[in-house]
Amino acid sequence: MREPLSFAARADWLALASWIEPRSRVLDLGCGDGQLLRHLQQTRQVSGYGIEIEPARVVSAVRNGVNVLQMNLETGLSGFDDRSFDTVILSQTLQAMRHTEAILREILRVGREGIVTFPNFGFWKNRMQVLGGVMPKSQAMPYEWFDTPNIHLCTLRDFESLCPRIGARVVQRLVIGPQGEPVELFPNLRGSLAIYRIQPQERRP
């Protein structure tokens, strides 16, 4: 789940914002307190809606002045028409979802493209912790194994091998390290956060 204003979160927002067309229609799934959406409204003048299930976060999002819709992502986006948004964002929420494949398919249906970000489980510090015999904890994954909402953690390679299966094509990828710096060499080892821009494999007419 998205942590408000953690450094890692802000790092993915900056990158993500640059991929968003100014004045486009954006749907932010799992929008938390709405800060990303507000950032996009201010910097890209998007018209956006956020979806959030947690009552306290809905209240924070309302307070932050964004359009927030209280809905359960796990039951899909059935209220939304095909391609009704330019971009559908799933920022650091994928790993906490039960119906991983279903939501990715929904993103590709409702959006002309999707932006998906998640903590890279393949990051070397995570691997070290597992080698040391414990479940990893980090800035991007600050939870204990017994109270984590994260149930579907994955690595860059895992995600990329899922994409063809759900009919997604990776258009752009940015991997960033723990200081928010872009990582190009050995990203699956050195990157702590992954940001993918995906589109349906066959562009619908």
């Binding site: 229609r25 018209s47 809606y49 009552p55 809905v58 999002a61 309302v62 964004v66 359009n67 927030v68 819709l69 209280q70 809905m71 209220g79 939304f80 028409d81 009704s84």
Partner: peptide, 21 residues
């Protein structure tokens, strides 16, 4: 209420929706 919401979204209107437990 979600029917109302859907119609508002179709028109790109500013809307927030709370479904209170």
């Amino acid at each position: 209420s979600r029917e109302i919401l859907k119609a508002l979204l179709d028109n790109g209107l500013a809307v927030s929706y709370a479904e209170i437990d």
